[in-house]
């Protein structure tokens, strides 16, 4: 039966917002169904594919493994918060140039996860990139062009830094 909804206040993509949700709703459900932000995708709903990657309090997290109510007082960054206005993030630009997406459904998760990597380590090598992204599954690309795109973005960021 329908549950009483909780009132949650959080910072989403830099903006203070609030929402209502049932305690049983995951952060992934809240983002997609309550807030209309469908960029974060559901692939498995049990923490094994990374399609729902968000950055929660500075850490890459599977939003399907977090309850909506746990966002109270936290900071959440989703794919919708990666570009700045109409300026794409170097990762997004690199993914386009390197053809690092085919169906594109894993792409938001990869970009969020890779952004967290480059924010923490601006100059990773191929092995580090592969290790960091091992929690994001892609079935279309075989990862080759994704890894190249992340390395290209880290070079691009170095140039502009």
């Amino acid at each position: 039966m329908p549950m009483r909804r909780s009132h949650v206040q959080t910072t989403l993509n830099g903006e203070e917002i609030d929402f209502l949700c049932e305690p049983r709703q995951s952060l992934l459900e809240v983002l997609r169904d309550e807030l209309g932000l469908t960029g974060t995708k559901e692939g498995c709903n049990n923490g094994n594919c990374g399609a729902c990657s968000v950055i929660l309090n500075g850490r890459v997290t599977n939003a399907c493994c977090v309850l909506g109510v746990e966002a109270e007082g936290a900071s959440v960054v989703t794919i919708e918060g990666v570009a700045e206005g109409d300026r794409l993030h170097p990762l997004q630009q690199a993914f386009l140039e390197e053809a690092a997406l085919q169906c594109g459904v894993c792409t938001p998760g990869f970009i969020v996860a890779a952004k967290a990597l480059l924010d923490a380590e601006p100059n990773p090598d191929e092995g580090r990139v592969r290790h960091w992204l091992a929690g994001n599954l892609c079935r279309c690309t075989g990862y080759d062009k994704i890894v190249r795109a992340v390395l290209k973005a880290s070079d691009a960021q170095e140039v502009t830094a």
Partner: peptide
């Protein structure tokens, strides 16, 4: 491409 890297592209769900 741009809609897919920004999360704006609409998939079935």
């Amino acid at each position: 491409g741009v809609e897919k890297v920004t999360g704006k592209a609409l998939y079935g769900a």
